[in-house]
Design a protein around this nucleic acid. Structure first.
Lengths: 239, 239
DNA sequence: ACAATCTGTTACATAAGGTTACATTTATTT
DNA sequence: AAATAAATGTAACCTTATGTAACAGATTGT
């Protein structure tokens, strides 16, 4: 894989910051974070150099537009601006003063990833980092190819999974014999945090079990840890 | 990326000129500016040659239509015309006398970028279509020649694809095992951004699957990632 | 001019994923 | 041990995303 790009996230909300940092990190980027303009400036002055900035429009003190203008005085580093939905004016102003793209909130982290890739590609910084061409793992007789997104049963049959089921299984397989909380699983699979009475993970786990377990009532592969979360019980090895 | 294209911006408003110059510059173009017809003529007479002209319709002295006619007498350089919104007549006249596209003001710079890319590609000067003699790749038994634009099935038969289908497949093959959003695919294949309820990518993917997949209902090669986009599941290697 | 092809749009069917409600299980308290 | 509380399992429902047939305008070839 080519050398990873360095992305700087500037947002005053710590949770958003952490979430994006983890999400982008998982997807091959080196990530730094800053909570305001001063932290951003400090980070920009350091090594390694920043390849792209994700900048929240609404910030305490100097806002995103101010900061963009300030950056543009001395640098052409690509900027992706996060804006409140429906505020076309700000978006256009943002682009005019030098942002390279914008993304209305709330957004899907995947979408941000796509924009970042596009902007970096257009900026011609370096060729797209090559995706992992091969990433196969084996557990309890099953074989999963994380790159091709398919799953083969011990009997050798290809088992179709929905996108959500696959993501969930991938998260478990990448952390074998480790209890993952619902929050962690949501973060790993959807890049979001849990809502108050969020049961979506439980339901998806149920659906996954129906496809993987001989007897979904007595799960051997995906175990429940009461008060903790779920875990993949089998050991995982490279295939 | 190949050598950058040279774009000439002709607008009497200095601020707009600067904004566009910076924006296009950031996005990989070499930019010159002119404030009126005379400056434009002067610039066209110089080196390096201009690959595309962004021309404001409303100009003091000779207007955009006049200038377009004058340019067309001796050159077929692509022209993108900027017009006031709602003036259909002018747009149509502009296109008739030789502009390649128009953009109503006020516009989003990103949109202008997309138009420029499309027009350049159409004009056959885009880096994408530059002199690659041979560029063959292999995936899942298939062989595709991006330069000759043909595709050979695992059985050795040449499979005819329409231009759009080929472009789409080429985009997927050039980013193997990477989820590409509908937006990215549109950008890569058509150089445009998605309209609100744009389903054209989905439809083309469907058509492509009918030609490549054994069972289009259970796609192994071109996978759907819900909420994400599509991806080529097979690894790709040079042939 | 006509036919054939291509491509985007529309409309509708299907599928996925989330939310909710309630059943069931497990833990805690009395 | 029974009662209570809390966590988990899951069916049913609803919203949204995707698949695709049918259509229409545009383009290309004859």
């Amino acid at each position: 894989m080519a050398e990873s790009h360095h992305v700087l996230i500037v947002d005053d909300d710590g949770e958003t910051r952490e979430l994006l940092a983890r999400y982008l990190g998982r997807n091959g980027y080196t990530v730094s974070v800053a909570g305001d303009g001063d932290e951003m400036e400090a980070r920009l002055a350091q090594d390694p150099p920043v390849d792209l900035i994700v900048l929240d429009l609404m910030l305490p003190g100097r806002d995103g537009l101010d900061l963009t203008r300030a950056i543009r005085v001395r640098s052409s580093v690509p900027i992706v601006m996060l804006t409140a939905r429906g505020d076309d004016t700000d978006r256009i102003v943002g682009l005019e003063i030098g942002a390279d793209d914008y993304l209305p909130k709330p957004f899907n982290p995947r979408e941000l990833l796509a924009r970042i890739r596009t902007v970096l590609r257009r900026a011609g910084r370096s060729p797209d980092s090559l995706p992992v061409q091969r990433n196969r793992l084996r557990f309890a007789g099953w074989e999963i190819d994380l790159a091709a997104r398919d799953l083969v049963s011990p009997a050798g049959v290809n088992v179709p999974l929905s996108a959500g089921e696959f993501d969930l299984l991938a998260a478990l397989v990448e952390h074998p014999r480790q209890v993952l909380s619902r929050d962690e699983l949501l973060d790993l699979t959807r890049g979001r945090v849990a809502a108050p009475f969020d049961r979506s993970v439980d339901v998806q786990i149920g659906r996954l079990r129906r496809r993987l377990e001989d007897d979904p009532r007595d799960p051997r592969l995906i175990k429940t840890v009461r008060g903790g979360g779920y875990m993949l019980a089998a050991p995982v090895e490279a295939a």
